[in-house]
Design a protein around this nucleic acid. Structure first.
Lengths: 188, 188
DNA sequence: CTTTCTCTATACCGATAAGTATAGAGAAAG
DNA sequence: CTTTCTCTATACTTATCGGTATAGAGAAAG
């Protein structure tokens, strides 16, 4: 593992534990055992470090979501796939998911929020596009795709939060319940 | 408005805009037009300032929640009251609600999280107790009260987040939909 | 009047923030 | 061999961080 990868890994651990703002560049390089110019050589700035982390590690989630939302013929099946996909990703990258969740809920003028906002907007856009295309099967959306996408992510994150805190296990039953709970809002 | 109240007000604005960690004590006192010893006279520390903010301004929410959860005879009616109560509070104190939401989702080792965790735990406890008492009407809870309380708060916060971002209005219909969506998970 | 208490300002503390100028080590390319 | 490029360390910058020692102003209490 080269220094670049070590820096990303350590930054993830520290950001996910205490938050982006609370962690100094010095602290990251000390944990890795290098010095600041090494970090600035690879990433240019603290912000660039977080951007690299988000872009490289969160991209697989976006890619899989793009695939799962590409077909809107069978909405219930796609929803189940989407929920499963998020659970799988959160289980594979718990630190990353926890970090991006915290940053997504941080405030608008916060630097971390603005960096994560890019990938969050991508997820939101993919879901909205999915719901628009599903409207041929479920009537005209009339702008509701935005609310649907947001409540879908909200439901997903509620259950993933529950799993991250150890309150539930990631069983097929729980995932099914999450899908059903969201679906109630959509089909009613 | 005395300096103490001004400091609390300005701290709320700044914390809700950029986050607790991103705001320095100096910045707060400059906006108010006083100096640091004034702030430290009233609050002792930056942490004390946030604690005062949370304790004083979030207490009405806790109090109303305690009242709304005191009776578990009519669960659907209580749920509607609880949702309404949170919406009313978020509308009356949008900055405060946004701030506590961000802090609740911030990371475990973060100072802001630990301060907000106290009042969050109170809300969680009131809801869990409500569900336990409701079990006489809905069968044994068998530990599910924790999941119920968390998904209830998750549903509430999803809809309030939607309202805070301007995606929905706080109409009775939306509140009813939120109640129904949560209820689906409970009665199914 | 004097003492006491509450509140606030000036000026400072050591520590840390993000970021950089300079230089050198080592490998690769000519 | 020399040049060039990539990577990293020492040592430093300026600004800000949370917090405080000291002192004074003004009101209240005796």
């Amino acid at each position: 593992m080269d220094n670049r990868a070590k820096l990303l890994e350590q930054a993830l651990h520290l950001f996910a534990q205490r938050g982006y703002d609370a962690i100094g560049v010095q602290e990251i390089v000390e944990h890795v055992g290098v010095t600041k110019p090494t970090l600035y050589h690879y990433f240019g700035s603290k912000r660039g470090l977080l951007e690299a982390l988000i872009n490289e590690r969160l991209q697989p989630l976006i890619d899989r979501l793009a695939q799962a939302t590409s077909n809107a013929n069978d909405v219930p099946a796609s929803l189940a796939t989407i929920f499963q996909l998020y659970f799988d990703f959160a289980q594979a990258e718990p630190l990353l998911y926890r970090m991006q969740l915290a940053m997504w809920f941080s405030l608008p003028d916060n630097e971390a929020f603005q960096i994560v906002a890019v990938s969050s907007a991508q997820q939101q856009a993919l879901l909205e596009s999915f719901f628009v295309r599903a409207s041929s099967f479920h009537g005209n959306m009339r702008g509701r795709q935005r609310v649907y996408a947001a409540t879908l992510l909200g439901t997903i994150n509620t259950y993933i939060g529950l799993w991250l805190s150890g309150a539930v296990q990631a069983t097929p039953q729980i995932i099914h319940q999450a899908v059903q709970q969201f679906s109630y809002g959509i089909y009613s």
